[in-house]
Amino acid sequence: MRVVDVLLPWLAGTLMLAALGLIFVVVPSEAQMGVVQRIFYVHVPCAWAAYAGFVLVAGASVAYLATGRPAADRLAVAAAEVGVLFCSLVLVTGPIWARPIWGVWWTWDPRLTMTVILWAIYAGYLLLRSFGGEEDAVARWAAVLGIVGVLVIPVIRVSVRLLHGIHPAVLTTREGSSGLADPTMRLTLAVSSAAVLALALWLVRSRVRLAALGASASRLRRELEAREGATA
């Protein structure tokens, strides 16, 4: 275990406490939306963490196909799992905010549609990894999916805009300049983002270590079985 793995959980924890204090005590309520708007400080950092996770999947997938190193593959799985986790949090916190503000839990606004499609792509990625079959082949297939996914995402982004082609983008401007008028709001968002990213990074590193330990455990088991087979 490296120093960074010892420090990361403490860093994430401290930042998280600071973010909670800022969100619930310090930051003023937004003028129009009131107290509900505070969920924004969790919602948006989670979205960034999810995007970062999915980009990391693609990067690690390219590295795996180029070098064939198992470490790159383990990074890809870890990033996908953490990405799906934070994407799920985005999809949970969003409707909680949307219900009182828009009056509905869900709407097929381009940005919402995009997020749920992203979630589906990487949930499929995790399904492929769990139910795929033989390990080496699955790692290669998953890498192909990780790369194609990130290549297609820009086109999906453009295509979902066609969905509401006749409507003006009313619902998507909520993060405009009016949203974070108070400097405390920007500070809260910054601290909360740092907390969520530190948490995500720690989760990814822990998940990579778990996968590495799992791989060496199964290698040891195979060696042991081979030795027992030889003596028997």
């Binding site: 499609i117 992203l118 589906a120 792509i121 499929g124 990625y125 399904l127 492929l128 139910f131 795929g132 079959g133 699955v138 297939w141 999916l145 194609v148 996914g149 297609v152 086109v155 999906i156 453009v158 295509s159 979902v160 066609l162 969905l163």
Partner: peptide, 21 residues
């Protein structure tokens, strides 16, 4: 893959969104 009947639609449908829309 092992669960092949389900796996193709699960992987393909979200990525096919641009063609569908």
């Amino acid at each position: 893959a092992r669960a092949r009947e389900v796996m193709l639609p699960v992987l393909l449908l979200p990525l096919l969104v641009p063609v569908l829309i």
